[in-house]
Design a protein around this nucleic acid. Sequence first.
DNA 1: ATTGAAAATGAGAATAAATCGCAATTAAAA
DNA 2: TTTTAATTGCGATTTATTCTCATTTTCAAT
Lengths: 156, 156
Amino acid sequence: MDKTAAIFKEFLKGRGLKFTPERKAVLREVFSLHRHFDAETLYQELYRKKVRISRASVYRTLPLLVKSGLIAETLRCQGKTSYEHIYGHGHHDHMLCIGCGKVIEFRSEKIEKLQNEICRRHGFKPVEHRLGIKGYCRECQRKIKMKKKLPLDSAE
Amino acid sequence: MDKTAAIFKEFLKGRGLKFTPERKAVLREVFSLHRHFDAETLYQELYRKKVRISRASVYRTLPLLVKSGLIAETLRCQGKTSYEHIYGHGHHDHMLCIGCGKVIEFRSEKIEKLQNEICRRHGFKPVEHRLGIKGYCRECQRKIKMKKKLPLDSAE
DNA sequence: ATTGAAAATGAGAATAAATCGCAATTAAAA
DNA sequence: TTTTAATTGCGATTTATTCTCATTTTCAAT
């Protein structure tokens, strides 16, 4: 059994919850995917692989995985909740291009440190955080300069 | 005419959009509210005040206000998009207590600076950012210590 | 192994948030 | 004014997610 399963099982046991085949399947699929995903995508992917578990179970399992600390919700992008791995995937923050949707991941030790310091000052025990910066990537900045009429999404 | 209206009007004119009474009403209501709000709340509030504009118009106007820079989406909290003022309300980040839902606002000049620096390095032009830290406030940390069976939301 | 209680499941109905289509209306530039 | 593109309201629709509940399953204690 791999490490993530052990963690999840442990988490579940601690709260009197069960490590069912369905939950196992979701966990497995989650960690076979790379990058961000949402509940529906995961369900479809499982379906494609002939793993027949209900949407409801997928929707019920993902929040448990979040609470177990294995995954986290990402910044909300287009109306649906999306997730990313935490386990085995060092923490990082995001830049999100408003123009083309590109995601740039980054990590700043200094920012992390400052955050922790601020939390300490407030007596706050941080569990998880998200920093998302919206803006325009290099390419989209160039594109925008060439338009006459300002597009709705222009930064200017 | 107040400053926010001037800004919004200007923004709209620049893209060939119109400063209609409905948009004016939404803008007005937005800035009469304090703290976070969502589309439905705003609609209800307007309805209560006998300002009869359709939900659709509210939903259509809020994104425009975001694009104008007057307001911003907040961290997603419970499935619906919520907003907060930007104009006249200095930017701030959030700590969100998982236990009781309390929101602590804070601002760190140092973090802001670091963010800008990182963006520069990536050729990214930031427009807006959100930093949200989830965790447990002082009180909830105390409460948790006293429980036997771990609640679903426990940090441990 | 058996059992029993609590928890989980699937299927689809239900809800909630947000968007869309369209005919009628309106803002604002000419 | 006139004109024209933009906007409105309404309700229908879509999309995401949650809920209901009868049935099944897990797991700890026999």
